[in-house]
Amino acid sequence: MDDHDALIDTLSREAAPVKRPPAPAVRAAVWIALALPCGAIVGLWLSRRFADWSMPAAAWALIGLAAAFALGAIAMLSAFNLTIAGRKPVTWPWFAAIGAVWLASGLVGVSQAADPWGHVGSGWGCYLFMVTVSVPMIALSIVGLNRTRTLYPLRCLSIAGLGTAFMTAALLALCHPPTGDLPDLVMHLLAGATIIAVTVVLGRKWVAV
């Protein structure tokens, strides 16, 4: 017991005033306010074409865009929640329901494409767009999580990566045709998986307590 008393005496002697971080919802909102413009600037540098909202599947594409934004925001809120000990991520049933809407909008886009099966490699440009646009967003999420760090780095970074992936999907939807073939959709999913993996690998050292 005396061991702990000695450590506690040392820690309390060194205890300087600390500034409490803002609430997780505020941190998530700040992340969105900074990350989306950064991602959009990189996106504009990569592509100046915009989606044609007069096409038949445009309504579904808009629903997909809104769902991707909502999923990104929920995931980032969960990631920031996980940086506070004892807090839980948001409820997954809601996340799964909105995720199903997002996937359905993608599948509707595939079903209305001129050639739904397409050809291998047709989504390569989308993959590069999503991964490149995600770079500043990943950096911002690691900086944001580093402010408090977390007891659960792997889970927290995976969720932050998921949030970043959905936000890049929302940005992609602004300059992507409302319809797309199946390999294109698969490449969107692969880009999301790459973004999650990169976030976890790059952030692990910086966000673990």
Partner: peptide, 9 residues
Amino acid sequence: LTIHRVRAT
């Protein structure tokens, strides 16, 4: 030690 590090949270 961890409580000390994350006491701000």
